[in-house]
Structure formats: C-alpha cells, structure tokens
Computed example of a mutant assay.
Amino acid sequence: MKQLVIVQKIIRTTLILSLFFSCKNPSIDNTQNQSTTIVQKINKDSLVSKLNDNLQFIGDSLLNDKTLFIKDLVNKYQHDTCGFIAYEDSMLKTGFEGVNIIGDIIGNKRNDTVFVLPTFNYCEDGDSYYFFDTSLPRLYTDSYCCHPDNLFPIGDIDEDGISEICIFYSSCASRFKSLIAYSLKKKTWKEIGRCTFDINFMEPDKEKRVRKRDKGKFEMLEIVDEEENKKWIQFSF
C-alpha cells in the first residue's frame, strides 16, 4: 500500500510539471509533452533538502540574489501535512518567465513586481502569483498556465488606498478563458468579479476590459460568439 501511494505521488508530480511548462502564450493552448526527472529519495528529509536547493536556485539564479526572500516567501505557504514537491533546477529555469512590473498597488509610490512559481506541496493544484512587496499576499490559482503578464492592476475601485487587480485566467484548454478581478481584504485576495474571455476575440486588450463606474462598482467587458455580441457586466463589492 505504501509503495502504491509513492507511485501515485510520482505520477501526480509528473502531471503537474507537464502542465506547468505548457501554454506559454495565453492565446494559444498547446499542451507540450515534456518529461522530467524529480531528484528525490522517497523520504521527507531528502525532499526538504531538495526543496531548499530549489528555492536557493530560484533566489540566486532566477531572481538575482534573493534566496532568503524566496525561502521565507514560499515556506510561509507550505504545510507540514501536505508533503513536498521538488523539481529539477533545469525545469524551474525553463518554466520561469521572469518578473512583471505592474505599477503601484499599495499606494507607496513604488512600482510593485509580480512573478509566478509552481506549487511545492501536494495540497495545491496550480501556480501562484507572488509579489516582491511582502505586504501583498500571494495569489494562488488552480491553473498551471499562469504568466507574470497575465496579472494587471485595475485601479483603486473601493477607494481604500490599495489597487484592485485582475488576472487573465486560463484552464490550459479550450478557447474560453476568464478575466477574474480581486480586492485585498483582511490580507487575502478576494474575488470580486469575473467574465468570459473568448480568445477568438483578442481585442480590445485585457487591460481595457475592466473599468470603474463608481466607488466599489466596476464593470467587465465580455465578448463571445460574435464580435458584435459584447456586453459590460456590472459588479459591486
């Protein structure tokens, strides 16, 4: 039974990696068959050691000497009961798309920066958006097709001094995606609205499909089937 559980975990990890490194272009969902080797001896100590190596590689090699920052950031969201997922550094490097400067989110007149990392435990099924500003919590998704430029600010809709954000969300399949808007409430990103994004109609740009109407009120543009069949969906929070 124990061996069966181990095999199941290895299979699941391989599937996670295959999805994580697919869909580089959000407008094209081509699932790529990529194999990987997980360096692990099936015991907790070796996985923890490999995970620490992964985080050091990300901090030193991918984010220019930010190892302590990355370790503190990722370990904040790890759970002892969820197990550990470790990756080959080469696969992390292949999947890492850099950072995206998204402007001032918290109103301190400094640009905020976002980047994407895969999950490092078995309780989660998807990538997460992380911010350099540690006062901003990560945004966890259940998608393995996340990209730094898929997240963008939409202005301070509720006028609390912190900008709301939106993501282009892809399930890694189908032409129908979503735009999902979030507001930071009680140190957590709370979904406040969503609409369908049909990649057959890529114009206008995603950033132009969300607009404020009034304090705590906004609308999102949905275009499906025919370009003429578009509507602004209203939300309030």
Rank of each mutant, 00 (worst) to 15 (best):
F131D: 03
S163Q: 15
R138M: 14
F96N: 00
C146D: 00
G83H: 05
S170R: 15
I165L: 15
A173V: 13
N100E: 13
F120T: 08
N111M: 05
I157T: 02
S128H: 08
N121D: 13
D125G: 06
I102K: 00
I162T: 12
C172M: 06
G103R: 15
D158G: 03
C172H: 08
S143Q: 09
A173C: 13
S174P: 07
N100H: 10
S170K: 15
I165M: 05
Y169R: 09
E159V: 04
E88S: 12
I162L: 03
S135L: 15
T141W: 08
F120P: 06
R175S: 11
S143F: 03
V99Q: 09
Y87N: 10
N100C: 09
G95M: 06
S174W: 10
E124H: 11
G98W: 01
Y169K: 14
P148H: 09
V99M: 13
I165H: 09
F168K: 06
P137H: 14
F115I: 02
G107C: 07
F152P: 02
I102P: 01
R110G: 02
R110N: 11
F96E: 01
D133L: 05
I101E: 12
I102Q: 00
E88K: 10
V99T: 14
C82P: 08
G98H: 00
H147N: 12
I167N: 01
L139C: 06
T119D: 02
Y140V: 14
G161E: 02
E124T: 10
D127T: 08
I165P: 08
D156F: 08
E164T: 12
P153D: 01
E88W: 03
I167S: 07
P137E: 08
P137Y: 13
S171K: 15
R175F: 09
D89S: 12
H147P: 00
N108T: 08
T141P: 07
N111Q: 14
F131H: 11
I167F: 07
R110W: 03
D133A: 05
E164A: 12
S128T: 11
I85D: 05
D125A: 07
G103M: 12
D156E: 01
S171C: 10
N150V: 00
D133W: 07
L139E: 00
D156Q: 07
T113S: 12
N150H: 13
C146S: 13
N111H: 09
F84Y: 15
S171I: 09
P118G: 04
I167E: 04
P153C: 02
I165V: 15
F131Q: 10
D125T: 14
S170Q: 13
Y130G: 00
V114N: 02
